[in-house]
Amino acid sequence: MYDAIMAETIQITGHEGDPIEAYAARPLQPGPLGGVVVIHHMPGYDAATKEITRRFAAHGYNAVMPNLHYRDAPGASPDDAAAASRATGGVPDERLVGDVAGAAAWLRSLTNANGKVATIGYCSGGRQSVLAACSLPLQAAVDCYGAFVVGDPPEGMPLKVGPLTHLLPNLSCPLLGLFGKDDSYPSPAQVEELDRLLTEAGKPHEFTSYEGAGHAFFNVDRPSYRPEAAVDGWARIFTFFGEHLGA
C-alpha cells in the first residue's frame, strides 16, 4: 500500500479573512478522503500537536492545525506566541470559530477531499472543538477533556471564557468525548451533566471516562500520560472517524 504523506506549514484564510499560519499533513492519495481540523491546547501550536496532525494523515485523513496564536505573534516560537496570546487575553471564541471555519474550508477545497470534516481538540481545544461543532456544519467532533463546556468556574476565578450549555442544541454532528475520571476540570460530575444535556437535546454522542487517568492523558511527553487510556482513546477516535468521515 502506498503510504506517503506530506506535512508542511501553510497559510490559510482565518477569521474575517485574516491570513494565518497552519500546519497541514496530507496523504498523497487520490482520495476521496475525510478531513480533520486539529485544535491545539493553550500552551500552543507545538511539536506535540504537529505530531498529532501527522498521525491523522498517516491514518488516511487530510489534517490541518490552524495556529490560533499566529496573530498575537507572527513568526514567533510556539511558546513565545502562547505567552503573547495569554498576555493579550487569550483566543476569543468568535475568532476561534472563524479560524476553524477557514481550516474546514481549506480541507474541503482539496482535490482529494470527500467534503466531510471533523474537529478534535485537547484541553482548552476540547472546549473549542465543541464550540466549533455548535457553530459550524461539521460531520464529527472530538472533545478530549475540555474544561468549561458545562459547569460554572470556581468562585473567584476570572475566567475569560464561559460554558457552552446554551449552544449545545446547535451541535451539528456526533460528538466523541474522552475524559479521565481523576480529572477535576472537567470533573466526572460535569461530564455526566454534558452527557445528560446532549441526551435531552437528542444529540448523538459517545463518552468514555477512564479509570486511573486525569487530565491530559494523551500527552506522551508529560507525567500525565496514561498509556492504557491513550491507546484505547486513539482506537475510539479512529473508529469514530471511520464511521463519520468515510467516503
Partner: peptide
C-alpha cells in the same frame, strides 16, 4: 486543565 487565569503587572 487550561486555567485561563492570568495576572498581568
Amino acid at each position: 486543565m487550561c486555567t485561563y487565569q492570568t495576572e498581568t503587572l
